[in-house]
Write a protein that binds this DNA or RNA. Sequence first.
DNA 1: TACCATTTTCATATCTTCCTGAAAGGAATA
DNA 2: TATTCCTTTCAGGAAGATATGAAAATGGTA
Lengths: 182, 182
Amino acid sequence: MKVASAGLRKRLENVEDQFVDLWNNMGSLWGISPTMARIHGLLYICGAALSMDDIMARLGISRGNVSMNLSKLVEWGLVRRVHKRGNRKEFYESLADVWEMFTLVANQRKRREIDPILNTLKRCRDELTPEVMGAQAAKEEAHMRFERINELLKLLTLLDGLSQRFFESHKGLREAVEMLTS
Amino acid sequence: MKVASAGLRKRLENVEDQFVDLWNNMGSLWGISPTMARIHGLLYICGAALSMDDIMARLGISRGNVSMNLSKLVEWGLVRRVHKRGNRKEFYESLADVWEMFTLVANQRKRREIDPILNTLKRCRDELTPEVMGAQAAKEEAHMRFERINELLKLLTLLDGLSQRFFESHKGLREAVEMLTS
DNA sequence: TACCATTTTCATATCTTCCTGAAAGGAATA
DNA sequence: TATTCCTTTCAGGAAGATATGAAAATGGTA
């Protein structure tokens, strides 16, 4: 019962720490480096605009590290820079809308990772067609490989379509909710 | 035009190499280590049962490495051991059904990674309820954090439900197809 | 049981990724 | 323009993840 009657500040910090740690682990799932995730986690859970020094102190991370990861977060669009008038420092704050955050990441990963994969797969498949291989394409070995690649393409295209549908805009969210509650 | 009239074997190897390489990159997406992915890629695209020596030779990987990664693949259920009678060696072959492979990985990652995250999140949320915090829970700072965690939980629970629906069984596949073609 | 073929394990080496701190760069103020 | 405050960059180092290869274990065969 060590936090039974702890001060508010202490309790909040306790929750924040747990959350940051959780976000840290989730990073790999989102394809985000752990430290980047921790910083973002802190900004999200605090809900306030923090300065680099705040973040350094709170997470025990060096200045350079914070700086680089913050710029990546800004690039991703998960975090935005905030100027406070009368203060030279820059502050940073996270998007507040989880759905927006999620679709941002999903769409970017699709573009950066999924689409290239689909293209390579198509190239592979095409190298096994009769147009390219001539009579050799009919050989069992070639045909089987063609089929396997094709199956994969069909599945990935399907998943791609689904994710488009759900993550492309805010409408997807509503649709998803309806789908599960109907 | 270097492969214009190449031998069948050579052409197949060429495609196989591309595919293995692609799989290697996809590994990170599936939460699978690159080498593990390469081995699995090779087994999938070849569609045959290969021995450890085959794999070592084809991918240029050491025996110990192949051994360890193969056992992980077997653990995951993506690859099965095959005994050929009259041959002491063990052979390994990949599942052939891409949908099955996908659901296997999805379900396992859910269990290993998503579920623990959901639990931690719930714990975090509960620490911010009036039951635990008393009057402090009403403070703006505490309430805001509670809301943010709750929003996140709602979204993740939704996504979790969707994935359940799609990846739990073969029915999910049909449903997904219908959804996109309707 | 002794032998041989094969696989597994694990200490060590290698590679990659990430982090630090100090120096350089920028931009607001005086 | 000089000064001050703050941020970015990056070479070098630390930590972590992977791979190797040889020794130990396993399990079939004679």
